[in-house]
């Protein structure tokens, strides 16, 4: 379990990185934290000719606040997001969810862009980003493009990222005051990839009816899944147990999770409903408590 031979390139700034990508893109792999790539190298499941280590490109690092969103540089580490007071204040769903990513020793190296680019359907960040209706900013030596998660995540481990592009930053919309949020996940062991996970943001009107519902399910499909009908069903309703149960199970038939030894297709589908109901309950409780009031 040793990496195969490759040429190692370490750009010092974004321009260098993009130039290298333009030159070697087809035969190159971008590495930031390496927490997904190095296991693949060690198992020789990936044998790139070049590795472009963007870990020192300062322009890709950092967490900043814009009007509607928290904007996180592609190579910002999980641990920095986890500990960010700004993220905790403006986008607490992300803080809650990111703690489910692997273990501390992974989060100290793993990066936000790396996780998004790897596009594991069970990974937490793609699910959270999808629930928040965030955006991914991709850049190449030619252009900068901003896409939605639906445009970005194409299938299992497959994204619309071209060989000459890298993820510059990710925009996580802020959670409005008066909204509640919840992230629910079950995994066989603590720190494992999720069997299923759910991220929810609920906005309540003053009268307690649901003004907006944003939901994403991870591990339930080849890409993070937005149950649009369930969202629409919830909007305008005064939530109670039966409504939430109905919403949670409304679109289970639309899910097409991959079955494996840890959970069959049917089980994951069923579990999606259980977790969604729990997440909705928790999000609504939070909204009601006026966490952000």
């Amino acid at each position: 379990m040793k990496p195969p031979k490759f040429s190692y390139l370490r750009p010092n700034n974004l321009q260098e990185a993009l130039d290298m990508l333009a030159e070697y893109g087809d035969d190159a792999k971008i590495m930031s934290g390496g927490q997904s790539l190095i296991p693949l190298l060690n198992m020789r499941l990936s044998t790139p000719g070049y590795i472009i280590d963007i870990g020192r490109v300062e322009e890709l690092k950092g967490i900043k606040e814009e009007e509607d969103a928290i904007v996180i540089g592609g190579i910002t580490r999980h641990v920095d997001v986890e500990k960010s007071a700004l993220v905790q204040e403006k986008c607490p769903l992300l803080t809650e969810g990111i703690r489910w990513v692997g273990h501390n020793q992974i989060r100290t190296r793993g990066t936000i862009g790396g996780s998004i680019a790897h596009a594991d359907p069970s990974a937490e960040l793609p699910c959270i980003l999808t629930a928040l209706r965030g955006e991914i900013v991709m850049v190449s030596s030619e252009e900068e493009i901003t896409v939605s998660p639906e445009e970005f995540f194409l299938s299992y481990l497959l994204t619309s990222l071209e060989p000459n592009q890298l993820i510059k930053e990710i925009r996580f919309p802020k959670i409005k005051k008066g909204s509640g949020y919840a992230f629910e996940e079950v995994a066989r062991r603590h720190g494992d990839f999720a069997l299923v996970e759910v991220a929810v943001v609920i906005e309540l009107d003053d009268d307690g009816t649901i003004a907006d519902a944003k939901i994403a399910l991870g591990g339930a499909n080849s890409v993070p899944f937005i149950p649009e009908a369930a969202e629409e069903f919830l909007i305008g309703k005064l939530p109670d147990d039966s409504i939430l149960k109905e919403a949670a199970t409304l679109q289970l038939d639309d899910l097409d999770p991959e079955g494996d030894i840890h959970g069959s297709k049917e089980y994951r589908r069923y579990l999606s409903g259980v977790l969604l109901e729990r997440a909705l309950n928790r999000a609504i409780d939070r909204a009601r408590e006026g966490v952000f009031a």
Binding site: M1, P3, I38, P39, D53, G55, H103, Q105, R109
Partner: peptide, 27 residues
């Protein structure tokens, strides 16, 4: 394990714990 699960190779990098099997020395 050399795939980042067992943690036996944990070291501190700039004071933080990391898996030394999931890092190139050059990093």
């Amino acid at each position: 394990c050399e795939h980042g699960v067992c943690g036996a190779c944990t070291i501190l990098l700039n004071g933080e714990p990391v898996r030394s099997c999931l890092m190139l020395a050059v990093q």
